[in-house]
Structures are given as structure tokens and as C-alpha cells.
Design a protein around this nucleic acid. Structure first.
Lengths: 211, 211
DNA sequence: GGGAGCATGTAACGGGTTACATGATTGG
DNA sequence: CCAATCATGTAACCCGTTACATGCTCCC
């Protein structure tokens, strides 16, 4: 097995989608990544999807055809090539040290919550809870959709479903944590200290590396 | 309260660190974000930290001094300005629609696991489990460190600790999900799992037909 | 037939990275 | 005293974005 081309993970993610479907357009890929991929990895911008598909085509990992007469309008429809399939398989097994990235805007704001009133911290958490609830519903929908897909000749949806359940569990933990935090924050509206009034505060050393 | 400057979130994250400490160097900020910020938001590259600090200084949100004679060598030491503190506070309360991004390389690879042998999927999950265990230990260390910090005149570490516990819960859910998945994948190297043997995923809904 | 929104892109920008350069400190 | 590591940046690159342009389709 040869080393896979050194593409960004997003490229392999798009290539990976083409392993599940016989053909996809850029628009299809974007929809799919919004609905599913985005819950455990990333959902690239539409324009990014198109650019990535063009690169994959230049590398011979996907092949494009123009819409045929019975397709209503001009568009490029992509399918994976054998070389593309090999490349994905090689990439999947290539060991990596990449860690999970959890980019959590609400947590970042709460982290700085001492600068604002306690009530505003509660609001941040409450808004976040609503967001996650919506997201969990979306994940459930994707899960139902994936399970309903017939797999005649196409790969089983077993692992995609397992990954969606995995990510659902993670987002549920986020939700539970947010609710716990809201409880901790209590009902009080205590005002925050927004500055160091005297400027004479004593020194604090060394960010947390074990003390 | 005026609108905060339109910086990337990373800029506010760095500015935020300066709300907790009286002074920080770029190197300090990088260490801190590795140890703590990175578990719930992001840990920028070292060079990125320096560039961001330079921009914050140009905007008057931080002020720098050169190392004084009793500091051993030449370096820039930053402290937040009142304008910087105001900017962070305004940014914290500014409502945002940004969703959590969970960039999970192991999940992405498992998602494509049908392309490789079942045993290799198990290996991916096992390696991931080790990674997360290490990470959880790091989070615990940061938590202990943060709790041990004296807060004389400086902001309380209550919210940073709460956020660390929150992110710890999320990463624990990741770990639990990985272990469940490993169990689902079974000990064999062959047959696909078609049922839900452990019950761990029993929250899965019935499969109707949906988009 | 015209507006709303679907679908497919292109161009330019900026955020974030890797690779590199350099001095200061520590320790074998 | 030399090597390793700490520490501080700079430069170039590329991933991913936002903003924009354009044609098609549906439907009122």
C-alpha cells in the first residue's frame, strides 16, 4: 500500500463521502456534511467543497462528468476513482497524532465570565443549551436517515451510524454539563469585578502546570 | 458599552488570559493555552500568539514593556489595558450564533472504516482511547493548578474551573463512547455487528424513513 | 414573467500553520 | 565548553472563509 497523497483532512472527508454514494455534486456534499460530517468533524464552506473537488479531480482521485441531457441543467457530477478509493483506505489506517479539537464558543465566554454580571453568564449558558438541543435533534434525524438508506451494493451504514451515536453522546455530555453549570451559577445576579481598582494587586505566578 | 473590535476569537482568548494574570509573555500565553484553553477552545501556534499580541498592542488593548534589568533577558512582557478589559467584557456578552465545533480525527477515520479490516478500526479506537486518557489527566492537572492559585486581588478561578470541569465531562463522554464502540466492534476481525449487544447505544431510535 | 430561492461556482482576504533564524540558559 | 533546551520571534505558505456573480427552476 503506497502512502496516500498529503491532502488536508477535509479533502479525505469529501473523498470519503464519495465512497458511500455512487455520485455526488458539490452541493450534495455540502448538504451531507452539514447534516452529518459536521457533527463529528467539520462542515466546510460551500466554496471550499468545490475547490477541494477540483483538486481531487486534478489528482485523479475523483472523476467528473457533465450533467447528461436528462439531468436538468449544467453541473459537474463526481464519482470516486479506484485510485481515490485506495488513497482513502491508506489514509484511514495511517497513524496520526491529531487530537480532538473542541472549539466551544460558549465555554470560552463563560471562562471570562468574571468580567460581566452573573446574570449574563447564565444567559450565555441558556442560549447554548438551546443550540445544543437543536443540534441533538439534527443528529437524530441524520441517524434515522442513515439507517433508512438501502445498501444494495453500497457500503453498510453501520459505522457511520456508530460514529453519529458517538458524537451524539459527546454533545449530550455538553448539554448535561451546561445544565449542571447553570445550576451551579444559581439564581443570584451578583455583580462582577471588572477591574483591579487599586492596581496594587499582588503577583500571581505560573499558569496551571500542576501548581 | 461600545461594540468590541472585530477580532478573531483567538484574539479575545489571548486578551482574556491577560485578564487573569497581571503580566504575560507570548511564551506564557502559549503554555497556558496548551494546558487549559486548548481543552475547550483552541491552542494557537506559538507564532500565532506573538502575532496576535502584536496586533492587540497596535490596537491599544494591551501594553508591552521590555524586560527590566532584573529580568534575565530581552523579552516583551504584556499587560492588559483598561480599553482591553472593556473590549473583552463587551465581547463576552455579545450574542453569537457560533456552534460548537468537534473536530474528531478518530471518528472521521472510523466513519470510513468499511474500507479497511475490522481489526484496523479497532486499532484506531484503541489509540484514541489512550490519547483521551492522557488528555483527561492533563485536564485534572490544570484543574488542580487553577484551584491552587491564590486570588488575592486577581479574579476568582471559579469560572475557569467550572469550564474545565465542563470540558472534562465532554472528553469523558468521548472516552466512554469510544469504549462502547470498541465493545460493539467485537473481538472478532470479521462479521459486522448488526445488533446492539451492550445496550450502550440503546437510545437509538426506531428507523423510520426520513430524509 | 418576475421574484424567491436553488445550485454552481470565482476571487480575494485573513486566520493559522510550518519552517526557519537566533539568542540565552542550563547541565553533562 | 558544547549540546540541548528554553524562549522569541519572522516569513512564507495554504486552508478555509466571506463576498460576489450567475444561471436555472419553481410558482404566484
Amino acid at each position: 500500500m503506497s502512502a496516500p497523497p498529503d491532502l488536508p483532512a477535509t479533502g479525505y472527508a469529501i473523498l470519503g463521502m464519495l465512497c458511500f454514494e455512487r455520485e455526488l455534486t458539490g452541493y450534495d456534499a455540502k448538504k451531507w456534511s452539514d447534516a452529518s460530517l459536521g457533527h463529528f468533524y467539520w462542515s466546510p464552506a460551500t466554496s471550499h467543497v468545490y475547490r477541494e473537488l477540483a483538486r481531487l479531480e486534478a489528482l485523479g482521485l475523483v472523476a467528473a462528468r457533465e450533467a447528461t441531457p436528462d439531468e436538468p441543467r449544467t453541473k459537474r457530477i463526481y464519482r470516486i476513482t479506484p485510485a481515490g478509493r485506495d488513497a482513502v483506505a491508506a489514509w484511514v489506517t495511517r497513524p496520526t497524532a491529531d487530537a480532538v479539537v473542541l472549539k466551544h464558543p460558549a465555554a470560552l465566554r463563560v471562562w471570562l465570565g468574571h468580567l460581566v454580571a452573573r446574570e449574563q453568564v447564565r444567559e450565555i449558558v441558556e442560549r447554548h443549551i438551546e443550540q445544543v438541543e437543536t443540534r441533538l435533534a439534527t443528529i437524530d434525524e441524520s441517524l434515522e436517515g442513515a439507517q433508512a438508506i438501502p445498501t444494495d451494493g453500497l457500503p453498510s451504514m453501520e459505522l457511520p451510524c456508530a460514529v453519529l451515536r458517538w458524537s451524539r453522546a459527546i454533545h449530550r455530555a455538553d448539554l448535561d454539563g451546561a445544565r449542571d453549570l447553570l445550576r451551579e451559577l444559581g439564581g443570584g445576579t451578583g455583580a462582577a469585578v471588572t477591574s483591579d481598582p487599586t492596581g496594587a494587586a499582588s503577583r500571581r505566578r505560573a499558569p496551571p502546570s500542576a501548581g
